[in-house]
Design a protein around this nucleic acid. Structure first.
Lengths: 128, 128
DNA sequence: TCTTGACCTTCCAGCGGTTGGAAGCTTTAT
DNA sequence: ATAAAGCTTCCAACCGCTGGAAGGTCAAGA
């Protein structure tokens, strides 16, 4: 399987597959006689794993660890859980930050007439 | 006032002030005879405005627009409100994304024993 | 056989917002 | 006089991704 087919099968585009190889998230692919990368079914699984982990917001460095745990039959679920919980905490921190921004701005917007006049609590709040 | 003092007074560090100048968020500063940037009180206000807008999560491009509206006495509050509402919507979209990640992961973590055994719904979910 | 076009290769650059460092000049304080 | 603090510019990195340029390879159709 060439990189394009792997991309189709895994849901990770070719550009990113090459990138993931270059940062050593995934191992170097075999090459055929003309230098094309050649893949197998295992690679579809690996890339799909990466895609799903990304969709949960895991950063690539943590996905590296997750891949290691995935392949390690002697892993402990506590190690996985710990990693996931740490990520949940980071997600929550971001959520909190964004919500506090949204709430502040929401309050300002609700108090803004939104008419033809220049007076505006949003601008005033930024100027204060 | 030199850049360091402006940084102290505005809460935006020198590095960022120079950067904001380079991307034309703020106008080029005057220079004294030795090439140092020279600022006045107006600049403190401008940079503080930028800092507050950043703390509400506005991207620099939108802050550029906000600065324009701020300085424009003929602005309409509806224009400001529109900009702010658009940003709220973007914040909300990010919040929704992160919350859905957090919720999925939370569910997995709750079902993970977190013990010495390798079996783990988190890893399984990423592999499926 | 020749051409077209779809695929593959590497390399380089940018996005947004910030931070860090190097190397050199100026000002201030001792 | 000297040292430290502050200023200057330039270059690079972070994260995850996207785009393009310039070229090689392969399959199908005329």
């Amino acid at each position: 399987m060439n990189i394009g087919e792997l991309a189709k099968n895994s849901g990770v585009n070719s550009k990113m597959i090459r990138h993931y190889e270059s940062i050593k998230l995934i191992p170097k692919a075999q090459r055929n006689s003309s230098g094309y990368r050649v893949y197998g079914d295992k690679d579809v699984h690996t890339l799909s794993f990466v895609r799903r982990a990304r969709s949960l917001g895991f950063p690539l460095e943590e996905i590296k660890l997750l891949l290691g745990l995935w392949k390690n039959k002697k892993r402990t679920s506590s190690k996985v859980k710990e990693l996931a919980q740490k990520h949940i905490d980071e997600l929550q921190n971001k959520i909190d930050d964004l919500q506090s921004m949204r709430d502040s701005l929401d309050h300002l917007v609700k108090n803004c007439h939104g008419d033809d006049r220049p007076d505006c609590p949003i601008i005033e709040s930024l100027s204060k």
